[in-house]
Design a binder for these strands. Structure first.
Lengths: 213, 213
DNA sequence: GTCTATACGCTGATAGAC
DNA sequence: GTCTATCAGCGTATAGAC
């Protein structure tokens, strides 16, 4: 995610100052608890500039969302273009997400925690955006290539990425105290253990008989 | 979750009418896009009643949150009290969550999707609330009892419940079109495959060597 | 306890000078 | 393009009758 660093760390141009200020405030207080005046104050620009550049508060959120989504997509595409197995691609994506959660927490928080449909009503949910569909596609290719045990695509994809995404949520909420990167190896191990295509399910616990309620 | 049905399906008393109306509106439009007038109109009560009962909009959200959290906790406790293995307890919790996602979607949506810290600033995040800690405790007991392969508690718990929670999110966002219950068996199978304590990790893919960025 | 009418503050947005 | 001053509307909350 090269350009993203530019946005986040060197806030010289006006657009960037506004976006970085908005990102920090949105994550800290939530979109609806931040006024345009707050952003203006934090970014050291005038209200007029904000309206000139982004047309309003929703415009900021929108620009931020698409910008970060685009960076996310580029990261995924970068991984796809590398000469790796599909399993390794999944691993690398998870590693990048873990590292970003630690180094650029607000970016991940904005993308995962924000309820974008509240201010982007016509947009599809983030789960159906390109980067996420790409992730599911990688899993599917892994199945087709015989690297991953076959199964329903949704279930397999959720099994591969669900644990890691859950860890990110717990970390962002402050429930997990240690950096995620130190859990990386074990997370990866947990994911793929049992995901080998030829493996036979052994000693699976029987489903409880009486399940009604 | 017995009392919950009372709240949701028979909105006779004033409190319940207000809470159910608020739940529906909050989930549909988001907390900040709902005014007290909207709730008042939907619930067929006056504004005065709302302020008498709950003290304001935040009061409604708070009451709703704690009420549903309590129901959630009772469900978990019910499962804990049953004579089941810890694995089966996890399974049953997931089944209940899947069924509730289908039959009482708004309840699950409110608990999982809402950013409660925006209107309950001093409360701990939901991930650290009693029901969630109980779920992690069940996993820990499973490890101690030799039912589940040992490992870091966070990682193991996220592996057990992460995939299912991810499926719920995808379903709530409308990305998954079919009822979750039909995926239940495969989800459970995916979770426990490879989680057997004595199992040796076979043919794990090597971690990519060059991981820097 | 329930209701209506009203007040007040905040926030998003604009107008117009520079 | 940038800024300041100002407006208009909405939404929370209250006052007071019933």
């Amino acid at each position: 995610m090269p350009y993203l660093n530019k946005i986040v760390s060197t806030p010289e141009p006006v657009d960037c100052r506004i976006l970085t200020a908005a990102l920090d405030l949105f994550v800290e207080r939530g979109f609806h608890n931040v006024s345009v005046h707050d952003v203006q104050k934090e970014a050291n620009v005038s209200i007029g500039s904000i309206y000139n550049h982004f047309g309003g508060k929703e415009g900021i959120a929108k620009a931020l969302y698409y910008h970060l989504l685009n960076e996310f997509e580029e990261m995924i595409n970068g991984v796809i273009e590398e000469d790796l197995s599909n399993r390794e691609r999944c691993n690398k994506i998870i590693l990048q997400l873990f590292e970003y959660t630690e180094s650029r927490r607000n970016i991940i928080s904005y993308m995962l925690h924000a309820k974008h449909r509240e201010f982007l009503p016509n947009e599809p949910p983030i789960c159906s955006s390109t980067p996420f569909t790409s992730m599911r596609k990688i899993v599917q290719q892994g199945i087709d290539a015989g690297e991953i045990r076959p199964g329903n695509p949704w279930v397999v994809a959720a099994s591969v990425f669900g644990g890691a995404i859950r860890m990110i949520h717990l970390r962002l909420d402050g429930v997990i105290k240690e950096p995620l990167t130190q859990y990386y190896d074990e997370v990866i191990d947990c994911i793929w253990r049992g995901m080998n295509p030829g493996e036979v399910t052994k000693s699976r616990q029987p489903r409880p008989v009486e399940m009604a309620n």
